[in-house]
Design a binder for these strands. Structure first.
Length: 261
DNA sequence: CGGGTTTGACCCGCGC
DNA sequence: GCGCGGGTCAAACCCG
């Protein structure tokens, strides 16, 4: 699969998460490391997270990982989504994504503040951007989700800020930013051209605030009118939580000078 | 009226 | 240097 390969060249694969019909209290990881964890540290860190000591890259056994809490249930669960296949792929150090995190600055706010003086004479024309500042990438996690809806509810609120046509794909890619003022997390959503039923969602950055739906480390909060939170929401939120917790684990041994959130 | 979306233009990195 | 493609901006528009 094209997109899959593309992503895997740039980002490491954490796991392939499959959700059964019933919303599980554990989810399965299969064919994890026979795919491509280019940096062994990543896979080992991941295994550490799972509490797995012995690991050979050829292992293809299913691993069942207990979740902190079962996802919220809603009456629509079984009807909306029967199952979801999710691949999540954290950024790789050699793509300079994760490793650059420690030097990452809130570039958006900064550049805006710095360039404010130029605004009057550029008004409706181009806005100045920082020129010599390298664009440093936040760590990224990509999920491939089999779903009919493009935008899966993940417990956060997003504002769409752009959309672009994707080369060799009839489906556009949309760009979203977390609406929380202090949170610079971005999200890209696109549909696989090879398999239109697969939605590829890439998260960039780390939320600095709790999810609306699943506060970290606690039981899920189910709103009274939980219509918003579909089965897709539940299945999608879990890998995100998982990825973030994986990433947090990784931060400890491998990353320093993390800016306080 | 405020917040979200659309969309065309611009910026930037990268490969040739 | 140039062109291409991905990413972002922001004015205009939409909608509740």
């Amino acid at each position: 699969m094209m997109e899959k390969r593309e992503i895997m060249e740039n980002e490491n694969l954490i796991g392939n998460v499959t959700f059964p019909d019933q919303i599980p209290t554990s989810f399965s990881l299969s064919s994890l490391f026979d795919m491509s964890c280019e940096d062994e540290k990543d896979s080992l860190g991941f295994m550490d997270l799972l509490g797995i000591k012995d690991f050979s890259p050829s292992v293809s056994d299913l691993l069942h990982i207990p979740l902190m809490a079962p996802p919220p249930r809603s009456t629509q669960m079984s009807t909306l989504v029967e199952s979801s296949e999710v691949l999540n792929l954290p950024a790789t150090p050699n793509s300079s994504s994760i490793s650059s995190l420690s030097t990452e600055a809130p570039k958006d706010e900064q550049s805006i503040a710095v360039d404010e003086e130029d605004q009057e004479n550029t008004k409706k024309q181009l806005k100045p951007k920082k020129k010599n500042q390298k664009r440093l990438k936040e760590p990224r996690f990509a999920f491939m989700t089999r779903s009919e809806v493009d935008h899966l509810e993940d417990g956060y609120r997003w504002r769409k800020y752009g959309q672009k046509a994707v080369k060799n794909s009839p489906f556009p890619r949309s760009y979203h930013r977390c609406t929380s003022a202090t949170c610079g997390v971005k999200k890209r959503v696109e549909r696989s051209s090879d398999d239109p039923t697969i939605v590829i969602t890439t998260y960039e950055g780390k939320h600095t605030h709790p999810s609306l739906m699943m506060p970290r480390g606690s039981a899920a909060i189910i709103p009274q009118d939980s219509r918003r939170f579909s089965a897709a929401a539940a299945t999608f939120a879990m890998p995100m939580q998982f990825a973030q917790s994986y990433y947090q684990q990784q931060q400890q041994p491998y990353f320093h000078n993390l800016p306080p959130s």
